[in-house]
């Protein structure tokens, strides 16, 4: 067959680099075309993406059921809020500190329960998330401001010459963080650690038998996931300028869980799609008013019917699903 010059373009058009370059270009141009309202929507989409990526480490890569991830998010947000309002520490200094606080919290609370399997881990993490939220409501040592939360959090700034205080600047801040995170996580997926995580997810016993210290690797996943959630909490707190316990409910944890599963476990592009669904869907369907959440719920069910492995499942190292009915010979299901 004769080789046409177009084939080269075709090959280029399907290449990964080009897709990434196109996506980046869209992200760079988008905020200059729309109003602040839509920039803010894209900001929250970024927050959900970061949260989805953070839970994806725990749930997607290692297969640990974590339904209390909002707790880590809350620790990050409140660390920022309290240290900034009480001691005036700048937000950007608090960014790594919030990550550290959430990571430390995850290490302390997950160490004693990391041996639990499946649903028992799920309920324990759920309980921890709830304990964090209830503790914030109860205002221990007069730090968290009870149900009203903490007010008056600063804008992030690099000295007087760069203050991040507009929707546009927040948009670039969050997507810069998301971009760097994606770069790091992509490298991590192919590393020794990433492969060990996937091995544990697929068969923990075999992984142990091959000399993988599954306990440490599982803890590492929790610590890293929590740190990323802490970063998201930091940016979220300074964007809203206040934090309150109702932003960190069990419901938020459920949404993060859905982001990972709708996109496809362990798949980074999947997380972005899942976050887009969770973050953008209720906004797009706002004209439907009170019916929009009905549509949202139905869409979640439909997605799982038609794409049970997620919208963009990971190709290599994809998760195997086992039928809930086992080999019962039910063919109508």
């Amino acid at each position: 067959m004769e080789q046409t010059p177009l084939a080269g373009i075709g090959r280029l058009a399907s290449s990964r680099q080009l897709h990434i370059a196109l996506a980046t270009a869209v992200f760079l141009i988008y905020p200059f075309l729309v109003s602040d309202y839509f920039i803010d929507i894209a900001f929250y989409f970024g927050i959900y993406t970061l949260l989805g990526l953070s839970l994806n480490i725990v749930l997607g890569e290692v297969g640990l059921f974590d339904l209390g991830h909002a707790g880590f998010y809350a620790i990050g947000a409140y660390t920022t809020a309290i240290l900034n309002t009480k001691f005036g520490i700048p937000i950007l200094v608090l960014l790594p500190l919030s990550a550290l606080a959430a990571a430390l919290f995850a290490y302390v609370v997950c160490s004693p329960v990391i041996h639990l399997q499946g649903d028992y881990l799920l309920i324990v993490t759920l309980g921890m998330g709830e304990i964090v939220r209830l503790a914030l409501i109860n205002n221990p040592f007069d730090l968290t401001g009870g149900p009203n939360g903490v007010y008056g959090i600063d804008f992030p700034s690099l000295g007087p010459w760069l203050v991040i205080d507009s929707s546009l600047e927040y948009y670039f801040l969050i997507w810069l963080i998301v971009g760097l995170t994606i770069l790091g996580l992509t490298k991590l997926q192919d590393s020794r650690i990433g492969r060990a995580w996937n091995y544990i997810r697929e068969d923990e016993t075999a992984a142990n038998a091959n000399g993988i210290d599954s306990r440490s690797y599982k803890l590492l996943a929790f610590v890293m996931g929590a740190a990323l959630a802490g970063v998201a909490g930091n940016v979220y707190a300074s964007k809203l300028m206040c934090v309150s316990p109702e932003s960190f409910t069990f419901w938020e944890s459920c949404l993060m869980f859905c982001i990972v599963l709708i996109g496809g476990m362990g798949s980074i592009p999947g997380v972005i799609i899942g976050a887009a669904f969770i973050g953008l869907f209720p906004e797009i369907f706002r004209p439907f008013a009170m019916y929009r959440m009905l549509i949202f719920g139905s869409a979640m069910m439909l997605m799982m019917m038609f794409r049970p492995g997620g919208v963009w499942p990971r190709k290599r190292g994809a998760v195997k699903y086992e039928s809930l009915l086992g080999g019962t010979g039910r063919t109508d299901a």
């Binding site: 949202f296 069910m301 799982m304 019917m305």
Partner: peptide, 19 residues
């Protein structure tokens, strides 16, 4: 979603709950 396994079923259950 039974054939797909338990995690998709969790999302479906959450969807049913929201609905």
């Amino acid at each position: 979603v039974y054939p797909a396994g338990r995690l998709p079923a969790v999302v479906s259950a959450l969807g049913a709950s929201i609905f």
